[in-house]
Design a protein around this nucleic acid. Structure first.
Length: 262
DNA sequence: ATGGTAGGTCTCCTA
């Protein structure tokens, strides 16, 4: 069967539950992983998504910050969550489908403005979070797993609107790119979206601060879908739904989707 | 070189 998995940093699920409903109706993914839900789980309107057939979910939340949710219309069970860096942040949750495929949903710390771990605790946190991801994947290599999320790093030169102008900007610095590569190496991960679109500019995020995000197109590819080696050959297509960035009162991120024959 | 916008919470933090 074909299973479509989507990832979207929604920037407040309570404010944008209507946009999520629109996306579920129009794109009809089997599984939707959300980040920055910004709410305790008990205050999320999950019943609105159950009505659309998304009867299974796994969620982690906290007041005002972070938060990760997985909605599924396929039967799924919770497959744990991990408190990276031991700060109590809701940045990771996972489910397991009946066929054994695991879906991991991550929200990696943004890292603040200054790309210096000695001067900026948020950047240090981001790098420590990535090293902990690396170490956990080294200790327990994932199998039959899809990893998605807002990883807050645009690793390639064509993942940003200007490599030259962003090489010292948090999200695209060499040390972040190296840390992300180490996470990929440790888990044996493959970049699903780039496996289908190996060339050319590709973005999933455009700042709210641009006068005209669409015209200036100063985007970055911060949101990713990865697969383990045993699944990468089953990935059939992938895309970024840029048009959602232009919806009414949008998130600053667009959804990323991929399908798998599994 | 700088400032620009958005969301949540409780006056400023985070992105």
């Amino acid at each position: 069967m074909t299973v479509t998995i989507a990832s979207w940093n929604i920037n407040s699920l309570r404010l944008r539950a209507g946009l999520v409903e629109r996306f579920l109706r129009e794109a009809a993914p089997d599984i939707l992983c959300l980040q920055e839900t910004k709410s305790p789980v008990e205050k999320l309107p999950l019943e609105r998504f159950e009505t659309l057939g998304y009867r299974w979910n796994a969620a982690r939340g906290q007041k005002g910050y972070n938060g990760v949710v997985i909605l599924s219309r396929l039967p799924a069970e919770a497959d744990g969550h991990h408190d990276f860096c031991g700060m109590g942040d809701a940045r990771h949750v996972a489910i397991r489908l009946a066929n054994g495929v695991v879906v991991e949903n991550f929200y990696v710390p943004a890292g603040g403005d200054e790309p210096d771990p000695a001067a900026n605790p948020k950047f240090d946190h981001k790098l420590r979070f990535l090293r902990e991801m690396r170490d956990r994947f080294s200790a327990a290599p994932p199998r039959r797993t899809v990893l998605v999320g807002d990883l807050n790093i645009a690793p390639r030169e064509d993942d940003v609107w200007s490599h030259r102008q962003l090489v010292n900007v948090v999200s695209h610095t060499p040390i972040e790119v190296e840390h992300l590569a180490a996470v990929m190496e440790a888990g044996g991960w493959h970049d699903v979206v780039r496996s289908h679109q190996p060339e050319g500019q590709l973005y999933s995020w455009w700042s709210y601060r641009a006068r005209d995000w669409d015209a200036s197109d100063r985007g970055r590819r911060l949101d990713h879908i990865w697969a383990t080696p045993d699944l990468i050959g089953h990935a059939r297509d992938s895309r970024i739904l840029r048009e959602a960035r232009g919806w009414e009162q949008p998130s600053d991120h667009a959804p990323v989707l991929a399908s798998f024959e599994i």
